[in-house]
Amino acid sequence: MVEQGSYTLEQAIANLQQTEHLGDRYYAAWWLGKFRVTDPAAIDALLDALNDDLDRSPDGGYPLRRNAARALGKLEDPRIVPALLHCLHCPDYYVREAAAQSLELQGNPVAIPALLTFLAGGVAAAVPTPDKPHLVQPYEAILEALGTLGATVAIPEIQPFLEHPVAKVQLAAARALYQLTEAPEYGDRLIAGLAAPQLPLRRSALIDLGATHYLPAAAAIAQTPAENSLKLIALKGLLENHLTRQAQDTLHLTEESEQVMALMDSLL
């Protein structure tokens, strides 16, 4: 879908290329990703936006670069992965985080060595940034990307992060290790996260389980005290990951698939 109301592709590209109205540029970058445009001119404009120096936040960040990096993750072009790899060295934490998440979406294992360098120094180096609400690097996004990209080479580096003091980082490590090893202990670690006393942690565990095919989690997901919308998204992820791993004939529904759908029905 490219048309949305009166806003057009041409307008989005023009808005992204102009430099007078920063808000219009920010919105245009989001819009181009949201509607998954394929026009090379749109990709050109987004790649240019990754180097923008005009849009600066009070803390020195680069808001337009963040949005452009997020948008590019959803698009297809051979220039995207190299540009995102470059963004991993941006001084803005949130640009680095967006780049890692988008590299995960791109699904290209060529990103693995660059992502793996962020785990050098292990848990000891993964400390908070002074006066900021985040760690020195976007560890959650990096661990999740390594898991999705199938970086089995990273397993020894990921394992210590199960003991990181930040609970969400532990969950990200468990999710990646489950994807890389399929060992139930890591899936169970995520299920345990569903019982966390804090709602934001339960939400994280739901999203993490939705990135796996760990079917024993389905009933626990349905019973977690959290929004039904999020539980439905998690179960949909679980179901789709299960279906894509089956034999080519996805028309054949296993008993497990039907159980997941019955749980989804109960949450509507």
Partner: peptide, 13 residues
């Protein structure tokens, strides 16, 4: 969407 295709199949079956 794959999950919705599966739900359609299940309903039709």
């Amino acid at each position: 969407e794959l999950a919705i295709q599966a739900r359609l199949h299940w309903a039709i079956q």
